[in-house]
Amino acid sequence: MAELPQAVRGFWVTFATMFKKVVTEQYPEDSHKYPTQPRFHGRHQLNRWADGLEKCVGCELCAWACPADAILVEGASNTDEERFSPGERYGRVYQINYARCIFCGLCIEACPTRALTMTNAFELAEDNRASLIYEKQDLLAPLLAGMQLPPHDMVPGTTEQDYYANRVKGPAAVEGEVQS
């Protein structure tokens, strides 16, 4: 076959591509079709126990582990009148600065109570820095069925040990034998 002119040969690539499967993912129109990988490092979440109490104990290990100094935590004492988490201590202030966070996940590894995990949410863009600082109420997991908004007491008859051993399954439901 005679050599086609250079210009036509160039356009051949374009022409042939028109009949190939499209690999471009349309964002945001088709983003629902393309979920992230299940273990994608997205926005953090502060989890709750089954009765709605917060898992965070305000220990600051996440802040300690953070290589980007993106996390600020201040602990405080639970009282009998105002209880946010099982045990003595809860996180009174919890902030993650997403202008600093590098989504490395070291904070998740550091968390001793699995209070901090990462969701797959990645749409965090803002037009100002202040909005990139997520406060505790922005990070807390939603209340699921059976959960009650803290502050409230621990499930009657339980101790924090029962929570840590995952024996508390709901606002009144306790599995197995409870530690006295």
């Binding site: 600051e60 802040a63 300690w64 004492s77």
Partner: peptide
């Protein structure tokens, strides 16, 4: 000082 801070703070 209970639960006020950590040494690195």
């Amino acid at each position: 000082y209970r639960f006020r801070s950590r040494p690195f703070d």
